[in-house]
Design a protein around this nucleic acid. Structure first.
Lengths: 224, 224
DNA sequence: ACCCCGTTGGATCGGCGCTCCAACAAGCTA
DNA sequence: TAGCTTGTTGGAGCGCCGATCCAACGGGGT
């Protein structure tokens, strides 16, 4: 005679959509890093159950990929094409850099899934701008791939840095101080260059260093 | 009166060491990819329990990092220094490329933990060779970082490819065929360059393309 | 009034990393 | 020899994870 089933939460009136789920997932990721996206946390945030979520989303990978595509699409649509292809290219990759700076989990996901359709658009734009830079067709494949690999490498690096920052609960300057202190302790005779780099490490700007790398590649590409 | 505790496995006679654990972990990783390294699988393979493993190893991250350091150290000690710094540098990064090709999980781990001490040695060697290539001291910091980022980007890419290959249980050629087929389906008018790249994708060699990227970088460096 | 059937919420499952502790072997002390 | 200490070992159990499965709903068509 006792209640055989627990009282059930009232059914939601507003429909759950894929978009709303992806948006909530993005908020979780932005707020607490890659580890913060769990289905349990998502059900809590959306006040729903697993079934409802899995009705709109295939699995967690699908969700993470969709959130990544979302960010990437915004980057692409925000990139403006100017008269100078070199400047346009720099702006394009810088847009990706900034997006990953704002959403570090995107960097980690891109290096895990480098063949998403949204990256195809990126590849296309890069190749198109290389064409405008008079890179011969024979070298465009290698050049575009190399540039993309560099950008993705920086993306992963930034994602890793952000992860460590979040774990240690410190701000950027103390993090750099700790890294510099660690580097400063290495044997200067065995690691002369690393030791000398300590000074630069503390005053360097990730964004500028990224652009410096892009320029190195563009200079090398121009010689092809 | 019944046996209150289950009969216990006989205690091992040969001592368990950190090295043996790392070696077994490496075998698991090489055999089944990143997902194959679980503590349960490790206890089975070593015929032991969790306690014994955790007595020698801090946690799973420590284990993975140690296995990665192991591979990386071997790469560094295997790199030979020749008279030509440019050739030596190419050989150094190519050694890393080949190691990651043989142990793709290393690539994933390096992009997750890009500040391991073993990578510091790598950084040092790169900077040293850039110095030999007459890269001015002011540009060496950016140049070394850029090259490392590129190499790590390729590493992550290769790791991702290996993961997909392992998941789909196909060989490389059919994988490339599938990728090419997917790319060939994209709208040629919207993606002219990607569409044109299909041909090259099927005949391209990862190793050669990696070296082409290194050469682009070296050309760009020479202009600093 | 009926009954679909697309949605929803949550119990449940197997597997994971990790903690904790009893059991044991080898060495030391007396 | 007998006891005690100390460093290892094996495994039960905890809390979490992603994912499955299904009963319970409720709006729309008949």
């Amino acid at each position: 005679m006792g209640k055989r089933t627990a009282p059930r939460s009232p059914r939601r009136t507003d429909g759950l959509t894929r978009e709303r789920i992806i948006q909530s997932a993005t908020e979780l990721l932005d707020g607490g890093g890659e580890g913060a996206l769990t289905l349990r946390a998502l059900t809590r945030r959306l006040s729903t159950g697993y079934g409802a979520i899995y009705h709109h989303v295939a699995d967690k990978d699908d969700l993470l990929a969709a959130a990544t595509d979302d960010v990437l699409t915004r980057v692409l649509s925000g990139a403006v094409a100017g008269p100078d292809p070199r400047e346009t290219l720099r702006g394009l990759v810088l847009g990706l850099f900034d997006a990953i700076d704002a959403h570090p989990w995107v960097g980690a996901e891109l290096s895990r899934q480098p063949w998403r359709p949204a990256l195809l658009d990126f590849y296309e734009r890069v190749a198109q701008l290389l064409d405008a830079l008079a890179v011969p067709e024979s070298a465009r494949f290698d050049a575009a791939g190399t540039l993309m690999n560099y950008v993705l490498g920086v993306a992963a690096q930034n994602a890793a840095n952000a992860r460590h920052l979040a774990d240690s609960n410190t701000d950027r300057s103390t993090f750099l101080d700790a890294a510099a202190a660690q580097w400063a302790q290495v044997n200067p005779s065995r690691y002369p260059f690393v030791h000398a780099a300590v000074t630069r490490l503390r005053e360097h700007d990730d964004r500028e260093q990224f652009l410096a790398g892009v320029d190195i590649f563009l200079t090398g590409i121009a010689a092809l």
